[in-house]
């Protein structure tokens, strides 16, 4: 089996194509996904290949098509609903947060909603305050939703395919800034059916002195920061890619921190009630005695995202902030 280097975008496209091909009940719906091949070209060529019944252009009405998707899932189809950005999912918040995760409980188990909501989420580049929301911490607050955030092409493909086959509603929160990011991935089906399990973090880089917990956009930042810190300060940072926000792979996290005794959380969302708040709580709750320093966090600043490029850089998590947090945590 020969690995190929493909982009994150192509990996998502392959995942969609393979799942549409594998199961007649799978369909893709969203704004511009069909004739325009997707706002970010994730669905390139799929209309041509699978036809307008399987690849559907929806009107600009997120609450409507998200709800249609949930209804379709309830009667046995496997919808994949694309949000042009998860910032727009806020228009469909009631469907995603209220209906999808609760329909099984509310129907006494008669219905469930095996639906995938996917699309770019979180910080991108100069999209301003309303188009860059990192929604993971919002949705993570609703029991019944699964949330994955792939940071590599391989995980993008493998997690999206696993999401389509999962019986729960799954949010695949993609990273716009990584769409052109390349990585090695197994060949497409039928040669290889790539499934990455939901709920398993990966150790993106091994280290012994400090654990950087990252996901999505902060994974490459953390990796670069780790290289720099090793070169300049001899600190060996371990980088964990959470991959799955919910369920959270606590075991991998705790094992790493038990080894390093120091933690920096690098998250792409906002700090207040952000993912790092939960991670920090879990760590101190389970392995308080293993900590040799307080847990540090790098997140967005608690303000609306500015359009100005310099301000945007200062406001978002970045490599320099991760380096500084690691240095403070390690006392160098």
């Amino acid at each position: 089996m020969t690995l190929r280097e493909i982009t994150y975008r192509q990996a998502l496209n392959e995942a969609l194509a393979e799942e549409l091909e594998r199961d007649q009940n799978v369909f893709l719906m969203g704004e511009e996904v069909a004739q325009y091949n997707g706002a970010y070209k994730i669905s390139q060529g799929l209309l041509e290949r699978f036809g307008p019944k399987r690849v559907i252009d929806a009107p600009i009405a997120e609450a409507g098509f998200a709800g249609i998707g949930i209804g379709a899932a309830m009667v046995g189809l496997r919808p994949i609903v694309e949000f042009m950005t998860f910032s727009f999912s806020l228009v469909a918040f009631d469907q995603v947060a209220n209906n999808a995760p609760n329909i099984m409980t509310m129907s006494g188990g008669q219905f469930h909603a095996p639906i995938v909501f996917r699309g770019p989420n979180g910080p991108a580049h100069q999209l301003g305050a309303t188009h860059m929301h990192a929604t993971e911490c919002l949705y993570a607050n609703f029991p019944g939703l699964k949330i994955v955030v792939p940071a590599t092409p391989r995980d993008a493909k493998g997690l999206l395919k696993s999401a389509v086959r999962d019986e729960a509603p799954v949010l695949v929160l993609e990273v716009e800034m990584l769409y052109a990011f390349k990585g090695m991935v197994e060949p497409p089906m039928p040669e290889f059916d790539l499934l990455v399990p939901i709920g398993k973090a990966s150790v993106a880089r091994e280290g012994s002195d400090v654990t950087i917990l990252s996901y999505g956009r902060t994974v490459p930042m953390a990796l670069h920061a780790a290289e720099q810190i090793e070169k300049e300060h001899g600190i060996h940072a371990e980088v964990i890619d959470l991959r799955s926000i919910k369920p959270l792979d606590l075991e991998t996290i705790l094992n790493s921190v038990t080894k390093t005794h120091r933690v920096v959380v690098a998250e792409q969302d906002r700090p207040f009630c952000g993912i790092g708040a939960e991670l920090t709580f879990q760590i101190q709750q389970h392995i308080f005695d293993e900590l040799d320093a307080p847990v540090a966090r790098v997140a967005q600043e608690e303000v609306a995202v500015p359009y100005n490029e310099a301000l945007e850089h200062a406001m978002l998590p970045n490599e320099e902030k991760i380096v500084a947090a690691v240095r403070a945590t390690c006392g160098v």
């Binding site: 005794h261 308080f288 005695d289 293993e290 040799d292 320093a293 006392g331």
Partner: peptide
């Protein structure tokens, strides 16, 4: 003392009050 320092000190029977801390 950090939680880890306390744990290690307890396991070694060391009196933390006699140690000078180098942390913040």
């Amino acid at each position: 003392a950090s939680p880890l320092a306390k744990k290690v000190a307890a396991s070694k029977g060391i009196d933390l009050s006699a140690i000078v801390g180098s942390g913040p």
